[in-house]
């Protein structure tokens, strides 16, 4: 049993090694699954979207240092009745790479998080909605770059009813009971 386990581990390691070593994957970035977020009618809620970049790759941050570099941009197409507010990107890491040790680039590597502000209208129907979009990025490794890609992005939100306003007794004239 131990031998079989070791063999399986060995095969998996070889496969993982091959994946990391060879050229650009179809998508250098993948999005982590997002748990369904509950958002309340009329109230803005920030939804964190987590992305993971394959080992050995970097992409430009949302604010690259050169006009010629392609920024990472999330575009979201909300369903009717949901408004998308500000998208907040993390600051890029200032890094230089083997192909040009003298130049620092503002990049994302590894994991990064983009926050999207979601606000259902007061009139939005309660229930589950799928919000879709795309993450546009352009990846490079230590010796080459790859054409810009669009990663399909989607996450679910559940719209909940806004709590009803606290019931207030109407003001009464002090003379009513006199």
């Amino acid at each position: 049993m131990k031998i079989l386990l070791a063999t399986a581990l060995f095969l998996f390691s070889a496969w993982a090694w091959a994946q990391d070593d060879l050229g650009a994957p179809a998508q250098a970035v993948r999005m982590e699954p997002v748990p369904v977020a509950t958002v309340v009618q009329g109230k803005a809620t920030s939804i964190p979207l987590l992305f993971h970049l394959a080992n050995g790759y970097h992409i430009n941050s949302n604010q690259p240092r050169s006009e010629f570099l392609i920024p990472t941009i999330l575009r979201v197409d909300p369903p009717t009745d949901i408004v998308i507010g500000k998208t907040t990107y993390p600051d890029g890491q200032d890094m230089s790479f083997a192909f040009d040790p003298d130049e620092k680039l503002s990049v994302y590597t590894g994991d990064f998080k983009v926050d999207v502000l979601v606000r259902p209208l007061h009139s939005a129907q309660t229930g589950k909605y799928v919000i879709r979009g795309t993450l546009k990025y352009q990846a490079c490794d230590h010796a080459a770059c790859y054409p810009p890609k669009q990663l399909p992005v989607s996450f679910d939100v559940k719209i909940a009813k806004a709590p009803s306003a606290p019931h207030k007794n109407p003001a009464q004239s002090p003379n009513v009971h006199q």
Binding site: A6, T7, S13, A14, W15, A18, D21, L22, G23
Partner: peptide, 28 residues
């Protein structure tokens, strides 16, 4: 024989790696 199993695993892993490498390079 654990040694034989290990060698078989090593050969399969090497073939897998080479195959993926060739396929990925050709795709690139």
């Amino acid at each position: 024989n654990p040694l034989v199993l290990f060698f078989v695993a090593a050969i399969v892993a090497a073939m897998l790696f080479a195959g993926i490498r060739i396929a990925r390079n050709n795709r690139a």
